[in-house]
Computed example of a mutant assay.
Amino acid sequence: MSPSAYAGVDVGGGGVRVRIEAGEESAYGEDAAPVPRERGRVDLHRLADRIAASVEEMGVDRLDTMAIGVTGLPGLVREPGTLWDALRPRFGLGALVVAGDMVTTHVGALGFAPGVVVAAGTGVITLGTDLDGVWNQADGWGHLLGDHGSGTWVGQQGLHAALRAHDGRAGGSPALLERMTARFGPPLDLVAFVYESASPAHCLASFAPSVAEAARAGDPVSRRIWTEAGRQLAQTAVAAASGLEPVFSWGGRLFDAEDLLMEPFQSAVSALLPGARFAAPRGTSADGALALARAAAADGPLPPRHPYLYVFAETPAAITPTGGPGAQPPPRTR
């Protein structure tokens, strides 16, 4: 008899990441293309095809349960049951969990323990929760309205400084101008690349590694950008800590910048909230999704009903109170 197979899927601004576990065997796959969108919302039909293709490329054609952490849930995701309808027959799923990626990042970082987790990649969203009655979201408003301190924000600030240097305006960085030109070409090429892109946020975020490189090479403007990013993330984290023990963790690829971001982030959190404690993340958002998939298969400790998580099951009676096909999320709580 084949061992049970579970899949955890992380859908963020940087693409789709899949972790599969079957008995002692595990596999990981990644599709780095931007998340498909239609009029700003996540295109769930195309996303389902992307997820299915990633799983099938890993040689898997049957799964017991799957959990998907999706960027933009609930605001930019309509009818999450679309994923169940598309993926259930394709893989013979018995159950599917669809959650906001901040939930899967939280579970990946802290397990099912309470605390605050900052999820920072292309965008940023922070969740402070005890996975019961406290659900505090901070930021997650997209690059036009928020995402302060995110990869998009860092890349955008870096490009601002590069273009200031090009124009001869105060606050410019020749080091970033040099890297901008190497990455995108002359400024007019950059303008076309960003404004004609299907995902301007993704384009802007792609410059964040260059800002880190310049900061490590001693560019003061770049270092200030990272320091301010850490301060912005700290403000978001503390805002989400209401009603919780002050335990903070993090997830997302922006934290690959390590000390450039971590030192100002932790210093600012401690200054704003004396007594704050920091817990290194146990795993990633994909790991958190995998934990939710295993919990759903075992009728385990899934969080109660709230706006950020749905569970779909093959037998309608088995659909948990967290949601179901066509269900609308309740208002966000703080």
Rank of each mutant, 00 (worst) to 15 (best):
P187A: 12
H166I: 00
T152L: 03
G185R: 11
L261R: 06
L254G: 06
Q232P: 01
A237I: 11
T152F: 14
F207N: 07
A165I: 00
Q235H: 09
V221F: 09
E228G: 01
G168I: 10
M180L: 15
D189C: 04
F248N: 04
L254I: 11
E258V: 03
Y195L: 12
S206I: 05
E178W: 02
A205N: 02
E196Y: 04
V238A: 08
S210R: 13
A192F: 07
G243P: 04
C203I: 12
G158L: 12
G185D: 04
P220N: 07
V238E: 05
S197Y: 05
Q232M: 13
A217F: 05
R183P: 00
A237Q: 06
V194T: 01
E263N: 12
S242H: 12
Q156H: 13
E263H: 08
P209F: 12
Y195S: 07
M262A: 08
G168T: 08
E258H: 07
W250S: 06
R216A: 14
G252I: 07
L177C: 01
M262Q: 08
G172P: 09
H160C: 11
A170Y: 05
A237R: 06
L204A: 13
A229F: 07
A237E: 09
L163H: 00
G252P: 02
V211S: 04
P220M: 12
L163Y: 02
F255V: 10
E228K: 12
W226T: 08
W250I: 04
S199E: 13
F255L: 03
L261H: 10
A212K: 00
